[in-house]
Write a protein that binds this DNA or RNA. Structure first.
Length: 550
RNA sequence: GCCCCUGUAGCUCAGUGGAUAGAGCACUGGCCUCCGGAGCCAGGUGCAAGGGUUCAAGUCCCUUCAGGGGCGCCA
């Protein structure tokens, strides 16, 4: 609709030009929603922009443009208002028909063809399997899963992936820590590695291994024992992470192993390309990626002086695989703000591989501070004292967790106060929205009990202000989805859900649905059903449940 | 020191260069013969500070202040 109106305005200006009444063209026509409903459904400040170069008053320009406007059938009227806005109001009849449109579309209402089937990979969470997930990972998980829901509904072929970092210094550290704990469990006096993982979960993990394997691993040669224990530990850690994510309703098409990049040759191939491009140099016994030649402020190590590749080298190989082997058109990585410094060198590496850096989109989200009232809970895995994501989910509930994570923009830091989240469980926006859905379900149940067949309901009877306001809200869903798919910022969705719920509650209060008036009852039941479809869709996009009863 | 993010109502946060800056929580009043009162309606205070660009700035640019993150042969 916005595009349609923008086009109309453009054509009007063009027509005016041909008649010689207007001369310049604006760079682009922006259509917005006026905040004041009295100003109609859409508005454009086009005339204000043109006025200066026209040497005319904005109002005069607006009037001139409106003279040449040929309106689409959806629009009822156009008005020109001081200081020069052109406002459009939707036709009531068209609005009412949208109820039928929604009913016919059902769950697919709002789906778009923006992506035209292009392949998009979204990689998120990807936490090291060296400890349980914490709330920060939860934020990334919810962000990623919601975004992928929307991209899929917007016509992209989306693949969700978790990158498993199963090698490198932190994994060695994890392994040594676990081996030490394992030996301690069996009564040996060994000390933990200096920078080791000190959390209690490591002791639990060691005990679990003891109960399954006894002291069998103790009798192996140390190197063999460490390899074995690493394998067992990582597998158990990953199983826990998968379970946490499942509870949060986050799933992945693929769990991609970092190690496989070395076993299956992507690492060698990617390095060969960098070498061929002349981006690689050996210095101080290490191998460097010369990102400075691509405008970076410093070079980065690919292979350490001890011969082991860095995380950065792995990541280059990984992206080689994503783009060159798996042919994703767009790759979206969702990272915590602590990885922000990794972005420029990754972009540089992508360019060195011969890929357009625009195809790699990186979303960073600011870190989460977990607190319980006034008390701040630190999230460091290594120091040990953490509250896991699972504990938070158990305490607060999945729906509330998801909603809270979603309703802040990724750019802003967030305090997650467990006490507050729980307290709000009774009276907060999460339940406000779900309550609207339960209420709708209840009305529809009653209609069913009374055997009211509203399939022939006449939507043209929906004419009061609350009904039309509700419809206006309903039809904003596709536009919201488009905005989110374009900006990759899903935090608008919970706000939309609240506005929709408000419009419904208000309608419910003012308009009796099931009444003596049979025709009106059927028409309103159609509207109620359409509201259910849109509300449920919104909740499902957010990964939340749409309860029939509460 | 350099780079990134943030600063909006008492609190938690929205706000695509446009018209009177919004929502939830908290606080105060109303509203249940009838479909779910976990609801509806009403009530007020605010864009960190200072410059600039623009017909128009919470939004763009610069400076200062404050908070968070980064600047590893960690990931």
């Amino acid at each position: 609709m916005k595009q349609k109106l923008a086009l109309c305005l453009q054509q009007a200006v063009l027509a005016a030009q041909q008649q010689g009444t207007l001369v310049t063209m604006p760079p682009e026509v922006i259509i917005e929603h006026p905040q004041n409903p009295g100003h109609g459904d859409f508005a454009s400040g086009l005339a204000l922009k043109l006025a200066r170069s026209m040497k005319m008053s904005p109002l005069a320009v607006a009037h001139k443009i409106s003279e040449y406007l040929s309106l689409p059938p959806e629009i009822d009227k156009v008005s020109v208002v001081s200081p020069g806005f052109i406002n459009f109001t939707l036709r009531d009849e068209w609005l009412k028909e949208q109820v039928e449109t929604i009913l016919n579309a059902g769950e697919s209402y709002g789906n778009l063809d923006l992506g035209k089937g292009s392949l998009v990979q979204v990689e998120f969470v990807s936490a090291n399997p060296t400890g349980p997930l914490h709330v920060g990972h939860g934020r990334g998980a919810v962000l990623g899963s919601t975004l992928t829901n929307i991209l899929a509904a917007a016509g992209y072929l989306v693949e969700k992936e978790y990158y498993v970092n199963n090698m490198g210094a932190q994994i060695d550290n994890f392994t040594r820590s676990l081996y030490a704990r394992y030996q301690q469990c069996l009564g040996r006096e060994v000390t933990m590695p200096s920078e080791g993982y000190l959390g209690n979960y490591m002791i639990d993990l060691a005990q679990e291994i003891v109960s399954e394997y006894g002291n069998k691993l103790l009798n192996l040669p140390q190197e063999e024992a460490i390899t074995k224990i690493s394998e067992i530990g990582l597998e158990k850690m990953m199983a826990g992470i998968k379970e946490d994510l499942r509870l949060l309703r986050v799933d992945f098409e693929r769990w991609f192993s970092e190690r496989s990049l070395y076993e299956e040759g992507q690492y060698n191939k990617a390095m060969a390309i960098l070498q061929g491009g002349g981006y690689v140099a050996k210095r101080e016994n290490a191998i460097w990626f010369e990102s400075t030649s691509l405008g970076e402020d410093k070079d980065n190590v690919l292979v350490r002086s001890d011969g082991s590749p860095t995380y950065f080298a792995s990541d280059i190989a990984y992206h080689y695989n994503k783009f060159m082997e798996r042919r994703f058109h767009t790759v979206i990585n969702i990272w915590g703000a602590d990885h922000q410094g990794h972005i420029p060198r990754m972009k540089a590496a992508i360019r060195a591989l011969g890929i357009d850096p625009e195809q790699l989109k990186i979303i960073t989200y600011q870190l989460v501070t977990l607190r319980r009232g006034e008390e701040i809970v630190k999230l460091s895995k290594r120091s040990g004292d953490i509250i896991s994501l699972r504990e938070v989910i158990d305490e607060v509930g999945v729906d509330a967790c998801r909603f809270i994570f979603l309703s802040r923009s990724a750019d802003s830091q967030m305090d997650f106060d467990i006490e507050l989240a729980k307290r709000q469980s009774v009276e907060n926006p999460v339940y406000y929205v779900q309550y609207a859905h339960a209420r709708i379900a209840s009305i529809l149940r009653l209609a069913e009990q009374r055997v009211i067949d509203y399939s022939q309901g006449d939507v043209s009877l929906l004419s009061t202000e609350p009904e039309l306001t509700l419809i206006r809200r309903l039809i904003l869903l596709p536009e919201s989805m488009e905005d989110i798919a374009t900006t990759l910022q899903p935090h608008y969705l919970p706000y939309y859900a609240q506005d929709l719920a408000t419009a419904f509650h208000s309608f419910y209060k003012q308009c009796r649905v099931i009444s003596q008036n049979e025709a009106l009852t059927k028409a309103r039941l159609k509207l109620v059903k359409a509201s259910q479809i849109v509300l449920a869709k919104t909740l499902h996009l957010m990964g939340m449940t749409a309860p029939e009863k509460m």
